[in-house]
Design a protein around this nucleic acid. Structure first.
Lengths: 133, 133
DNA sequence: CAGTATCCTCATTGATACTG
DNA sequence: CAGTATCAATGAGGATACTG
């Protein structure tokens, strides 16, 4: 109600001057979405699925160290955000596939860009850190 | 020791096929850096400083709801990572300015890209969420 | 195979008070 | 003004066991 972010944004014209302040206001729902995609398992799931469809067990293997609970939780959250598509085949034993939606691909690519930048610049960062201790 | 990420990366040639697996391994120091820049106050501080140099009190005002402790902590972490430059003038009362380093600008721009994408697509995301409930 | 249900811990966050 | 120190609370994340 008091949050008019959607109204402003839905105009499609995203003037930097106008909307830049929105991020800073708590309560903006974008903060929640941001957390979903940048938290440890969310990030890894998105990047993993950039390579294509994967089954639950594939993801479990790929995201080393993830617990079943955290993987389920992460996938459910991202599915509810519309980033991940879950397809369950009614067979025994169960067969469930996860893939990225179009929105999911778009955000995953941006996440990948960020991660790539960090990995490329890690040597510089670590060198700097060791210098200043 | 067991982590050869730096060695691989320092070659400068970042083959997607090779390094894409690195993110998934825990222990990679890039995970730490990623957390520093994507956590709530880290993100906001970086984006705020994209607009130019700010004083401690400016940031405190801009990052609504941040406690003094969290702001100090956030700024120190990002300074140690080499993203933020802290300039203290030896006057009374104290005067401290924060700005982005070149690395800081580069990563802040990528963070901004991500945040912008989310804010632009928020209406779609929220609409989707309300549909599936 | 693909989950759910419980219980637990400890790291992040924050409120408050104090200081050079 | 620009912090530090201390303590308290919340919840994200995880270990384990069980199920359709």
């Amino acid at each position: 109600m008091e949050n008019n972010s959607q109204t402003k944004l839905s105009t499609g014209s995203i003037s930097k001057a106008i909307e830049r302040g929105m991020v800073f206001s708590d309560k903006c729902p974008s903060r929640e979405i941001f957390k979903h995609v940048t938290n440890k398992w969310g990030l890894l799931a998105l990047v993993a699925l950039l390579g294509g469809t994967l089954r639950y067990s594939d993801l479990r293997r790929k995201l080393q160290g993830v617990s079943e609970k955290m993987l389920s939780q992460t996938l459910q959250t991202l599915e509810q955000d519309g980033f991940i598509i879950r397809t369950a085949y009614p067979v025994i034993p169960p067969h469930v596939e996860y893939s990225l939606s179009e929105m999911g691909k778009e955000i995953a690519i941006r996440m990948e860009t960020l991660v790539d930048w960090i990995e490329i610049n890690l040597p510089n960062i670590m060198k700097y850190k060791s210098k200043i201790q």
